[in-house]
Simulated assay, not measured.
Amino acid sequence: MGGIHIEATIEFMEKIDDPQHRARVEEIFGWITEEFPNLQLEIKWNQPMFTDHGTYIIGFSTAKQHLSVSPEEFGMDHFAEDIAQAGYSATKGLFRIKWNEPVNYELLEKMIAFNIIDKAECTTFWRK
């Protein structure tokens, strides 16, 4: 059964000043928790991330203009075309969902499902 580190998550959410941004993050995290109940929401390095059996699946960070999403560099490479087609700007390690853009939940679902399957036998936090 999945879980959320409540106190750390509340603390992270309280740091998001804009109530609309906070609601957006809560909506996305709620969706992930519902769709992937075995994942754990944790705060590490002051950033929220979802893990499975102690291995990183996907992480997030907030900025003034956007929410950054990181499925690890391997995930970014694997989904580079999908990210571009979704219209999101990207770097080597993350892509950005602007606060005023719709969330492509289909893309998030594909990334999370891919990482869960691809890292099923992974015994480290990051891919080696």
Score class of each variant (00 low, 15 high):
Gln40Asp: 13
Ser89Tyr: 11
Val69Trp: 06
Asn104Arg: 12
Gln65Lys: 06
Trp126Lys: 13
Lys92Cys: 05
Gln40Glu: 14
Phe74Thr: 05
Thr62Glu: 02
Ile117His: 11
His21Ser: 02
Ser68Phe: 03
Tyr88Arg: 00
Ala80His: 15
Thr91Met: 12
Phe79Lys: 13
Asp118Glu: 14
Ala90Met: 11
Lys15Tyr: 02
Asp82Pro: 05
His5Phe: 12
Met1Val: 14
His21Tyr: 09
Ile117Gln: 11
Gly3Asp: 00
Ser61Trp: 15
Thr91Val: 08
Thr123Pro: 02
Gln40Lys: 07
Lys98His: 10
Arg96Asp: 04
Thr9Val: 09
Lys92Arg: 08
Trp45His: 08
Tyr105Gln: 05
Tyr88Phe: 15
Gly54Phe: 06
Glu73Ala: 11
Trp45Phe: 11
Leu108Glu: 01
Gln40Ile: 13
Trp126Ile: 08
Asp17Thr: 11
Arg22Tyr: 05
Trp126Val: 07
Ala8Ser: 10
Ala84Leu: 11
Met49Thr: 06
Asp82Gly: 07
Ala86Thr: 07
Asn100Ala: 07
Leu108Tyr: 03
Thr51Ile: 01
Arg96His: 06
Phe50Asp: 09
Lys110Met: 15
Gly59His: 03
Lys110Arg: 14
Gln40Cys: 08
Val69Glu: 09
Arg22His: 04
Glu35Ala: 15
Gln47Arg: 13
Ile116Gln: 14
Val25Ala: 09
Gly3Ile: 05
Glu72Pro: 00
Ile16Asp: 01
